[in-house]
Design a protein around this nucleic acid. Structure first.
Length: 973
RNA sequence: GGGCGGUUAGUUCAGAGGGAGAACGCCUCCCUUACAAGGAGGAGGUCGCAGGUUCAAGUCCUGCACCGCCCA
């Protein structure tokens, strides 16, 4: 056999991916006879390169899709990419900058063309990377959020929602990124607390006797408490602010109406320092009396909260900062300065003139652009908005009523809380890359100067550019220059990808989709909006389950990011460890909904696992020579040995566990069950136990009283007659059967290595599994069926018997190892067994113990006498003795036993105390008490037996800690 | 400020009322004819702290501390 001893991922991954593609396994067509299982991919940005977050997200999707496909569903995973408006525009702008150009140098049309060129060149990089990850997406359905179909969907949606009165245009305060030069929605702003200052600034009262606007001589402090009793007008009021430069646009100072200190001052006029403008002192519930001095400055044009208060109190809106973050004419002498430079100068001026009372260290909330991290500036601007209230209502209902289920459930609350308090969604973006608004203006109206209050023709919202203005007949119409928020097209993704707004068969069959898998960071940006839009436009939920996975972190628990330099590139991992190792690591690390930490050792471990499967399979393949083809693997096999029945029982239990875990989205548990079963049961025990049967033929098999094993019977379903199989053939059958099943269970997690082996196995055995020989499903493990549990094979009694064999074997190995008996040396073992059933089990399976514990001869029975001296172990009522004569250092054995005894004594003490408690005896359930008594009895016996054994090891040890105790410290070999 | 999650072996994590688990790492021995990316054995834990409920608490309740995230 020429199979290499190490699994080499590079040699197989490309081959099988191509095979799957060529065969068209990923593609799904409408097929009303089968149930669909549909997933839409969270479309990665075209600017993106596969990072661990993508790898996790897509591995999970692929596991589910492959699983469902094997389960017989018509599985359809719709892939695609996102045009990522601002992000992509920024990338291309940066490219241009290298040539010293800006997008304005090119002009809109040429710039957009350039972005498309960039997209053609680099936009599919991430798609290729997903293929390397093994994703079984239906690539024939690859979509792009800015392709023709999506554009059509976007236009249709905009027009429809406008006509329904949900989309409107208004002047409102929005988040503006001075770098990207565009408006942003509220959730595109990232808020962080940053180190800064809280400035206390004095605003003089106009009518205060001491207040002279020109040169105020203000008292250093005002005791506001005295204001309650003192009826004179104070000189000034102090306001606290983190952004002093905005004071230039202040149009009021506000206090809380219930604040006794200031109550009588309401309505007084203040003089805005430096600007010398008169502003009123107003009262509003919004003001928090605890913040700062209890009096806050109101800048309606540059703060969202102040904006609301301003509108409520009909305050003027003075815009002092422009769209590039510079001060406007309204800022007086500061005009033209950058907002931060202005802050500096203004503070100097305030200080000089005595207006600055103090500054305190303060943790300032700063909103930054989620694309370029520039501090955003709230500005009043004419934008398009979507009323979300009405859309949110049904979207809340479907989650509350359980039609859409979040996994884990706690995300439901977060979703609901957020949906309850929604502000309207600012849709328009002042960039060039994206879906142009389907809005046209009659040229007479002034798009550029929104201030104009002249009665103009209303904007025209239409699917196609109209020939003339329906109001005045003017033929000179221009389209709105703005584009829509990227997330607008993403919100339509589950149905735009299926052909909406056309009524397609795909839509009818695949919608609603089955499941959405994504990270929690886009619940608001994306998930919520898909639900709203799906309900509104399709009249149905877009998916019934949302699985939210965790975030990938590094070893220290930090989020992976380029700036921290702690990223692990999935492509590097694939290159070094193989795709399957990467996938298995991600799958087994992602405890449901929890964040996961990754580091090299985890990948090593998964790679080793792949290698383990590889080598176990090599072993099976090498030992299948002469194996007759099996026509039906469900044929009842009789006369199996304990090991056979045990592994079949464990295998079927594993099938059940893995299936249940996946069904409940407990992917890591499924992965761990497989790891445990394959490595520590199938490889460590079963394959080791069957070696003699495979290697040495019948004569070496000394399974007394089990004649049938020598001629196991396999019934042939076709003939109905039992086939006469040798013991070797039975083993071959069982190991083949279990391995083949394991591969199928493992396939969704490790698609490549399982396919490689499965194909080899198929060639070698002409296996037919539970599939007919002419069945197409035999072509590839990918389209084979998911293993089913054979309940009859699950046998608790067998598992118990095997556990006993394992325990005895382990106890002998333990003795050997701890007292240092050379591995090559064969020893004798004496087992005193009183229970008949245990004796029977061990007698029948003595050969396993002999082989696995390297024992030459085992003597067992109720009357077996202890050889003296001997090392010992106690397993329940069974005593194990290994004669030590001439073998070893007795002191080692004494210490070993003492260590064990003390551990048992400890447990025994606890059990006894529990059983002494009358309350425990009267209140605990029977079952528990019985169990506790059983435990006590067993521990007591074990302890006594061990003590007796210790005694027989004469002479007693003086100091257990002294290794140089008595005879023969050195026994080597 | 409000909310959510976390705190269990050296590390990463399972465990959701009745005898503290896994993987990796570590230590000892072994190149035994599938695999040294391996095998056998072993050491290692007052389950964040303080109260409470209970016969019984990693597990339920309350409070606190620290770490992380989200929202304002």
């Amino acid at each position: 056999m020429t199979i290499p001893t190490k699994y080499q991922p590079k040699k197989v991954e490309k081959k099988w991916y191509k095979y799957w593609m060529d065969k068209g396994y990923f593609h799904a067509e409408v097929d009303k006879k089968r149930k669909p299982f549909t997933i839409v991919i969270p479309p990665p940005n075209i600017t993106g390169s596969l990072h661990m977050g993508h790898a996790l997200n897509n591995t999970l999707q692929d596991i589910l899709v492959r699983y469902k496909r094997m389960k017989g569903y018509n599985a359809c995973w719709i892939p695609g990419t996102d045009h990522a408006g601002i992000a992509t525009q920024n990338v291309v702008e940066k490219e241009l900058l290298k040539e010293g150009k800006s997008r304005f140098d090119l002009g809109r049309e040429r710039f957009v063309k350039k972005v498309w060129e960039w997209k053609e060149k680099y936009g599919n990089r991430i798609i290729e990377q997903l293929k390397r990850l093994g994703c079984s997406c239906d690539w024939e359905r690859l979509r792009f959020t800015l392709d023709r179909g999506c554009s059509e969907a976007v236009t249709e949606t905009f027009v429809r929602l406008y006509k329904e009165g949900l989309i409107y245009r208004d002047e409102y305060i929005i988040n503006w990124c001075p770098r990207c030069q565009t408006a942003l929605s509220d959730i595109e702003v990232e808020h962080k607390e940053e180190k800064g200052y809280l400035y206390y600034i004095k605003y003089p009262f106009k009518d205060s006797p001491k207040s002279k606007v020109q040169s105020p001589k203000l008292k250093v402090k005002t005791d506001y408490r005295s204001l309650i009793t003192d009826h004179r007008l104070p000189d000034y009021i102090t306001v606290a602010t983190t952004r002093p430069e905005t004071m230039l646009g202040d149009t009021a100072v506000a206090i809380n109406p219930r604040d006794k200190r200031f109550k009588r001052l309401i309505g007084q006029i203040l003089i805005l320092p430096v600007m010398n403008r008169e502003i009123p002192l107003i009262a509003d519930d919004y003001v928090d009396p605890e913040f700062g001095t209890g009096a806050v400055k109101i800048t309606p044009a540059h703060d969202p909260n102040d904006f609301e208060i301003g509108r409520k109190h009909k305050l003027p809106e003075v815009r002092v900062i422009d769209t590039s973050g510079r001060m406007t004419k309204a800022a007086g002498k500061y005009q033209g300065l950058d907002r931060y430079e202005c802050r500096k100068r203004l503070l100097e001026d305030l200080e000089k003139k005595g207006y600055l009372e103090k500054k305190e260290d303060y943790s300032v909330p700063v909103g930054r652009c989620y694309r370029c991290s520039t501090p955003i500036e709230p500005l009043i601007s004419l934008q398009w908005f979507l009323k979300v209230r009405d859309l949110a209502k049904p979207a809340i209902e479907v989650v509350k009523r359980g039609r859409i289920r979040y996994i884990p459930k706690r995300w439901e609350k977060i979703y609901l809380d957020w949906m309850e308090g929604l502000k309207d969604w600012c849709l328009s973006r002042q960039i060039w890359w994206g879906h142009r608004l389907p809005v046209y203006y009659c040229k007479k109206s002034k798009v550029q100067s929104p201030k104009s209050k002249v009665k103009e023709c209303p904007p025209i919202v239409a699917r196609k550019k109209p020939k003339k203005c329906p109001k005045c007949g003017n033929r000179n119409l221009v389209q709105d220059p703005d584009v829509l928020d990227t997330w607008f097209s993403s919100a339509l993704w589950p149905f735009s990808t299926l052909g909406w707004p056309k009524k397609t068969k795909d839509l009818e069959y695949f919608y609603p989709t089955s499941l959405l898998i994504t990270g929690h960071e886009i619940i608001h940006l994306w998930v919520a909006r898909m639900i709203k839009m799906g309900l509104r436009l399709m009249g149905d939920i877009p998916f019934s389950e949302v699985y939210i996975h965790g975030i990938v972190r590094d070893k220290k628990g930090k989020k992976m990011s380029k700036s921290l330099g702690n990223v692990i590139d999935p492509l590097d991992i694939i290159a070094e460890y193989g795709t399957d190792a990467l996938r298995f690591t991600l799958a087994s690390s992602c405890a449901q909904g929890q964040d996961l930490q990754l580091f090299d050792e985890k990948f090593t471990s998964s790679r080793n696992f792949a290698n383990k499967i590889w080598n176990a399979s090599r072993f099976v393949l090498m030992n299948l020579t002469g194996f007759p083809p099996i026509t039906d693997h469900r044929s009842p096999i009789t006369d199996l040995t304990l090991a056979d029945r045990w592994i079949l029982s464990r295998y079927n239990r594993t099938v059940k566990e893995v299936t249940d875990s996946i069904e409940n989205y407990r992917i890591s548990e499924a992965a761990q069950s497989l790891y445990q079963f394959i490595w520590h049961e199938f490889c460590d025990w079963y394959l080791e136990m069957i070696k003699p049967r495979l290697y040495q033929q019948e004569e070496a098999i000394e399974l007394s009283s089990n004649r049938a094993i020598k001629t196991g019977k396999l019934a042939n379903r076709q003939t109905g007659k039992p086939a006469n199989l040798s013991s070797k053939e039975v083993v071959q059958y069982v190991m083949w059967h279990v391995l083949e099943g394991i591969l199928r269970l493992l396939h969704p997690f490790m698609p490549f290595v399982t396919e490689e082996i499965w194909q080899a196995l198929k060639r070698h055995t002409q296996m037919t599994a539970d599939i007919n020989a002419d069945d197409r499903r035999l072509e590839s493990i990918m389209i084979s069926s998911w293993p089913e549990v054979d309940k009859k094979r699950i046998d608790t009694k067998v598992e118990k018997e095997m556990a006993l064999v394992i325990e005895v074997t382990t106890s002998i190995r333990n003795i050997r190892s701890e007292i240092g008996i050379a591995p090559q040396k064969k020893i004798e073992a004496f087992l005193k067994i009183r229970k008949k059933d245990q004796l029977k089990t061990l007698e029948k399976n003595a050969t396993y113990i002999r082989d696995l514990a390297r024992v030459s001869r085992i003597k067992m029975g109720p009357g077996v006498a202890k050889p003296v001296p001997s090392a010992s172990a106690v397993i329940g009522e069974i005593e194990v003795w290994i004669p030590l004569k001439g073998l070893i250092d007795l002191n080692k054995e004494r210490k070993r036993i003492m260590r064990q005894t003390s551990r048992i004594e400890e447990e025994l003490k606890r059990a006894r105390e529990k059983l002494k408690s009358t309350e425990f005896l009267s209140k605990a359930p029977e079952r528990i008490i019985a169990k506790e008594k059983e435990k006590e009895k067993e521990l007591k016996e074990r302890s006594e037996k061990l003590k007796k054994n210790l005694k027989s090891l004469q002479p007693p040890v003086q100091d257990p800690e002294d290794p140089s105790g008595s005879e023969g410290q050195k026994h080597r070999r």
